[in-house]
């Protein structure tokens, strides 16, 4: 069973509802989570990453119930998470940082070294494996964080705004990586950039004020845009704008 199911999922913080009862099923492949600032994308990602528990409703990931401690632990072994706000230890080298997370993700001891090397190579940081994180550029740091996310070869890869600060070469590397992981598992990719969704996602989910306003293929979203008369943007962009406007109204 390789799917994520959200059933009437509500997240509320201090009386404010951030997610308003989401019903969603995410399957194999790359799913783009699109929405403006404050729409609830990061809250969805944090919930899927089992960092926060749902206030109400149910969540099932890969057949596991994250509310159960044992199942949550088992699920986290198959999970890769790149949060939007990236924290890191400046004194750690790239290799040590990725190794640290490999050990925290309970990668079998014999596989740790090869998994670390492979993850670092995969994000294109192999020449900087011995560099301290404090000495890296923002883009490289993002790549190092991505390496920790994939070091356990996750079945569910959650990437919250992974493209920020990346240069074109790093961007291409990361897009390739997302496509590859999407071929074998579930990738959920939260972003504000419509064109990024068009580049790698098969399915798009748009969020507005904690509510799903669209869920369908990239082509379907673009089709909505075709009827728009604002021709200065791509069809996908126009489709997103139309969905956004409808959601707000």
């Amino acid at each position: 069973m390789t799917e994520v199911k959200l059933n009437r999922l509500i997240q509320a913080f201090g009386g404010t509802r951030v997610l308003q009862g989401l019903d969603l099923k995410i399957g194999l492949g790359v799913t783009g989570l699109l929405g403006p600032e404050g729409s609830g994308k990061t809250t969805v990602m944090r919930t899927l990453a089992t960092v926060i528990r749902p206030s109400d409703g149910t969540l099932s990931i890969q057949g596991h119930d994250p509310a159960d401690e044992e199942q949550r632990r088992s699920l986290r072994r198959q999970l890769g998470y790149l949060p939007q706000a990236l924290g890191y230890y400046p004194g750690f080298t790239v290799r040590a940082f990725v190794e640290y997370f490999a050990l925290l993700k309970e990668v079998p001891n014999k596989e740790v070294d090869s998994a670390v090397a492979q993850a670092i190579r995969r994000v294109g940081l192999h020449e900087h494996a011995g560099s301290k994180l404090g000495s890296l550029s923002e883009g490289m740091l993002r790549c190092a964080a991505l390496a920790q996310a994939i070091v356990n070869r996750p079945q569910l890869l959650l990437l919250d705004d992974p493209m920020s600060c990346l240069d074109p070469e790093q961007r291409a590397t990361v897009l390739d990586l997302i496509r590859d992981f999407g071929d074998h598992g579930i990738v959920v990719f939260a972003t504000r950039a419509v064109e990024e969704v068009g580049e790698v996602c098969e399915v798009v989910v748009t969020l507005t004020d904690g509510t799903i306003t669209f869920c369908g293929s990239v082509g379907e979203l673009a089709k909505i845009g075709e009827s728009s008369d604002r021709l200065e943007n791509s069809a996908l962009e126009r489709g997103y704008r139309a969905v956004l406007a409808e959601g707000k109204s």
Binding site: S74, P83, G87, K105, E106
Partner: peptide, 17 residues
């Protein structure tokens, strides 16, 4: 350290208790 470096979020998603 984790609070200062903002890594709590990353760590919270790992299986090791």
């Amino acid at each position: 350290r984790n609070w200062r470096r903002g890594t709590e979020e990353l760590l919270a998603a790992t299986p090791r208790p």
